[in-house]
Design a protein around this nucleic acid. Structure first.
Lengths: 184, 184
DNA sequence: CCATCTTTGTACCGATCGGTACAAACCCGC
DNA sequence: GCGGGTTTGTACCGATCGGTACAAAGATGG
């Protein structure tokens, strides 16, 4: 007996690796060790439902581990610092791709438009709240938050393209120091 | 009679829209108006060759319109400014995706690893050269160049995710002013 | 106007796609 | 250990995949 939640990490990894279009049921079956029977028992909606569940879990993880602390945790500086730590760990120093980012670039964006949108809106907003709590004015917070999230996404692209994970770590360090000096 | 070069723009658009895995010969046929016969006549290597040709053309375009000016054109400030203009236009204010970036995120990266790597390495390097020519020291130039290219890629992701092209334009404006003030 | 060579549409190939049907294997309360 | 509901493997579906074969159609040189 296998539960949905147990399969989600493997599912997520497959979707990250191959994108939505590139992920076949054969790949999913291999990655999870489950036959089609089990897969369609767990996810009657097929591939689309699997992807939706994966996104939902990712979203929940970010909400609990990043967004909420950014909005609520004191001191905000610490929440921001934790965010960078979590991001570094979650994306495996740029070796792991952001599934939501990948979906945003593809045609599959239409299928998951609202989830993709919400993920990024809430990330940017939560970060802006934290920056405001640190002492920035509204406009600067919003702008910097946008810039930071974009920089993280871009660093993933670049780190993968150059096959140079250090670039990702470096980008995060730069962002950290930028937040620190801007806050001073 | 149709030449290879004539089909490349349509081909590029399809690959951008659907990614490598998501692009089927049926889509290609529809986008180019060419049957399989013609397609395989022009590109005996099939899908892989088509994508390779598209990348090559994109690469050549960036080399001629961005990289070379960044390295050679005087004054460098003008070359950098032109780069931002070209990027804004080329990526249609973030409505159009960067194919090379998309490939970098997917499994197809392996197929085109060297081309993808070279595209970004040369972009970063050319921009670093320009920044050095403006007066930055070596380390600062390299770091800023990396940051700018990553920011552009990330802004594309974010602009698409939020369906908000203005975000892309805004990101470019911020980068411009950052280059300007850093240069002062 | 014909012979030749290039370009194109179409029919077809085996493989694989996402998805369904369903019976065997399994687990459970009893 | 037996009956009933759940979980799973497998065979199969039509559609589509990337790619090939090939003959009709178009252009080209004489």
């Amino acid at each position: 007996m296998t539960t949905r939640t147990e399969t989600l990490p493997a599912l997520a990894e497959v979707f990250r690796e191959h994108g939505y279009a590139g992920t076949s049921l054969a790949l999913i079956s291999a990655a999870t060790g489950l036959g089609k029977g089990s897969l369609y028992h767990l996810f009657p909606g097929g591939k689309a439902e699997m992807a939706a569940c994966v996104i939902e879990e990712i979203d929940a993880w970010f909400e609990a581990n990043l967004y909420r602390p950014l909005r609520e945790q004191d001191p905000p500086e610490r929440a921001i610092s934790k965010m960078f730590e979590s991001v570094e760990r979650y994306f495996r120093s740029g070796r792991r791709v952001c599934l939501v980012g990948v979906l945003a670039l593809g045609t599959s964006r239409d299928l998951f438009a609202e989830a993709v949108r919400s993920y990024f809106v809430r990330w940017v907003d939560a970060l802006a709240v934290a920056l405001r709590r640190v002492g920035h004015n509204d406009a600067a917070s919003a702008a910097l938050a946008e810039e930071i999230v974009a920089q993280i996404q871009g660093a993933i692209v670049l780190a993968r393209a150059l096959d140079e994970p250090a670039l990702f770590t470096r980008a995060l360090a730069t962002l950290r120091s930028r937040v620190a000096t801007a806050a001073g």
